[in-house]
Design a binder for these strands. Sequence first.
DNA 1: AATGAAAGGATTAAGCC
DNA 2: GGCTTAATCCTTTCATT
Lengths: 199, 199
Amino acid sequence: MHDLDETDLEILQLLTSNARRPYSDIADAVGLSPPAVSDRVARLQERGIIRGFTLDIDRSQLRKGTPVLLTLEIATGSQDVSSVKETLLDTGAVENVFTTAEADLVAYVRAPDTDVAGWLAATFSEETIDDFEVTLLSGADWSPNVGGMEFALTCAECGNTVDSEGTSARIDGDLYQFCCPSCETRFEEKYELLQQGAD
Amino acid sequence: MHDLDETDLEILQLLTSNARRPYSDIADAVGLSPPAVSDRVARLQERGIIRGFTLDIDRSQLRKGTPVLLTLEIATGSQDVSSVKETLLDTGAVENVFTTAEADLVAYVRAPDTDVAGWLAATFSEETIDDFEVTLLSGADWSPNVGGMEFALTCAECGNTVDSEGTSARIDGDLYQFCCPSCETRFEEKYELLQQGAD
DNA sequence: AATGAAAGGATTAAGCC
DNA sequence: GGCTTAATCCTTTCATT
């Protein structure tokens, strides 16, 4: 399995700003032939980096309801957190679910009516949710990902942007990017020290 | 300006599950000709319901860093909240920003390093942020929008699903859907009462 | 909104490095 | 393995009804 290069990032950026952009356009932009772009996109999909081509929809025009952030404390011993997460996503009223390190869930919900507690009760059995908190929202935005450095690789050591001069290394199964060999060396030394400390 | 019908919702659903699906495919699925589908998609874009065609990307494979939920209390009298929001989205490390009714911000951030406070300080001047809170995350999911009733129109009065028997009305510039004329009437009566109360 | 013709894009296969 | 070119097939667009 090979690593992402700058051309892949460029393709990602172009497709993110318009997923229906013709591959021939992209080919011109990145200096490849259309089949080469098609191949790269297929590879990005196989690797799971591109999960799919989708729409950015203004849901506020489709689904009425009160937009809220819902913090859920899941009862231990009931279903596991990820099944609650799946249930939330399946309701269709939930757009995002964040799982905290404490295994709480924070969900962005457009509750079908103003009675969020009622909606929750209708969706989950009483024992599932230990406690919940509702924060009313007046807006929800997400990164449109157009232009800018959204997909830039950053040096794991110094944080600078990684360009074609950069290096990368796989350490304990994770891929790290570096802007220069000296950053890579420093990082690896630090990493080894950390590992020794942990043993 | 015409209202959304079930065919529009079907098109939205098909494109959401694959934004590169050929219009000829969609035409077959919804029983129209390809140019008719193209027209409808163009109209959905003009109306701002489709904001764009984009990628669903597994960013965890691209951007290292610590995923956190960041709750920001914006100092009153500094910049306004929406400019802080824009700055966050522009950093490239922020994927979602929710604006609460109290004008706080809740952002989903992949901080470039483990020092979230440092990242904040580097991004905003000291006076901008009154207070902040960091919640470590172990996961972040969003609704893949495939299958199910995600795009069903719900009655603004009773919450039932709106089918082809339903009605819709534009009230004060907003479009509302109703499952039946009596729900529409009841809603309009309630709305007028509310308006009178507000004056 | 459908049709049919013309333009444009995607994909395949063969060959190259 | 990943690239290119050229040929084929499919999709989209436009003018027309």
